[in-house]
Design a protein around this nucleic acid. Sequence first.
RNA 1: CGAGGUGUAGCGCAGUUUGGUAGCGCGUUUGGUUCGGGACCAAAAGGUCGCAGGUUCAAAUCCUGUCACCUCGACCA
Length: 581
Amino acid sequence: MKMSVLVGERYKEKPADCTIESHALMVRGGYMKQVNTGVYSLFTPARRITRKIEAIIRAEMDAIDGQEVLFPVVLPAELWKESGRYTSVGKELLRLTDRFGGELVLGMTHEEAAVHLVRDYAQSYSKYPFMIYQIQTKYRDEARARGGLIRVREFTMKDAYSFHTSQSDLETYYKRCYRAYERIFSRAGCKNVIAVLSDSGMMGGNISHEFMLLTDIGEDTLVLCSHCDFKANLEAAANITDNTGLSKVEALTLVPTPHMATIEDVARYLKVDSRQTCKAVVYQKNSNDEYVLVFIRGDLEVNETKLHNYLREEIHPAIITEESGIIAGFIGLHELNTHGKTIVVDQSLEGIGSMVCGANKVDFHYIGFNMDRDYGEVTYVDIAKAVSGGICPICGKPTLQVKNGIEVGNIFQLGTKYSKAMSMQYLDENGELHNPIMGCYGIGVGRLCASVCEESHDSYGPIWPISIAPWEAQICVLRADQPEPSAVGNMLYETLQHAGVETLLDDRILSAGNLFSEADLMGIPIRIVVSPRNLKEGMVELVTRDKRIERKVPVSEAAEAVVALKNELFAEINRSVLPEV
RNA sequence: CGAGGUGUAGCGCAGUUUGGUAGCGCGUUUGGUUCGGGACCAAAAGGUCGCAGGUUCAAAUCCUGUCACCUCGACCA
């Protein structure tokens, strides 16, 4: 490709609405253009990147016996009603009506379509196991898209669905897929991706993992242990609280705490450690507005996902009315009217001999509250968010760290949720009917592209790994108006193409500054600079985008050197790729 | 959905308070001079000022409505 005919323009200035680096650089670099909130068109450079990412994904999915299929984008609501998700999924599912009044949905994920495709075929155990996948457009009507390609409404996703006749077979396959994912991310040159345990939500005890790129701009919160291998999404991370040293029991005493409605205020006013306070966080059930009072150690926060999973109900932060009898800011377990309320006590309160808690009376708290003595027996549950420096649930050391990440993929042991709901059955060896056990596996292609950019860029532009770079080499011709540099540039361009190197030739007559800044925005790993100055010595310059290599080579050896460098850069990436299992 | 903000040339912005010929920088076109990190000179093209109503002799500017986008929340199979 010649730069002079490449569609798209590169900007010097950062677009006003870009808040994260990858977004700004990809807009500035002529990779994409916004069409609507969370909806983008891609220019050729971005499309070339996503095609390479897709090729890597295809190769790895095929290697674990995946079969590529293609589902429709527009699906009949009927299928989603069958699985029950037509009503259970919120507004992210875009619902439409066709001219005959038929109800349709835009596919945001394709479990239903997958079951529909194979349920007639796979009626015998002999057809199992198998995996089907597609790489296709998804639409999710996100409440708020942001961050360029990181969080969009329309996006390309690889989604795979596997079908098994036993849990152990699913688990075996799940491990292969886990490894395939590790290979995909490292082949794409994405280094800081880790797999974390994720919340399996209402699905019940199933295992799922999210593949996270560690970065401060990530919207997900992760809990990692620096001592052992424990890694989990905050939503799924157990919290263990150490209350040793807090077991001293004191007398229960009512004390005035005028206008002290927050834990910080109360702790300061009464001069106690916030670890010896008990706070109440109030929610309401979406179903009937019943109040849910969560009691938790004052310094901790409620993990709403855990609460939601524990209650098996949707909840929302409460609006506290006067009739409720709840005294906001002064809620305590002692002498609390629990009628019509659900009480949840977090395990962080276990073992505290005496604590400060609300007195259910405006401007009063108790000190010396003891759970067993002053309230009675309770079932402690884990509802709190894990914290930095917290205790690792695996190794028991206080070495938890909290970090941010972008979810670039996930793998999920689905179980029989969809096969049951949609009546997919097979006959086993004994002639008995069963629902197949499913797994599903997703990767956001555009998000991965943006994530690599986020992970690998400098202030001038992206630094694409050679495995996904839009082109492998770029020739910058300085003084393309002069015959010699122009001729050498063209000659190298032809030679490199014949040598199988994807090459972008910048043949435009521009100043060096312009050429280099635009080349930086293209982020192509190998750059060949052809200039009158070097040509005097019969040389061209060979540099890598990351500046690790900068050297001169004779014109006659340039193409060969580029091929060698290309191979070395690929080899470097391949060295980090784990073997298949 | 809540709070805040912004809509003026391809991009970045000024002008709006106090109504009076539509501006600047980058980019684009043409000609010339430059030439290793976003050069310079000259000339030029490009805008129903988001949209619709209203007030006025006169509206980018004031009023009403509406749409879009951005940020922070809520939400996220």
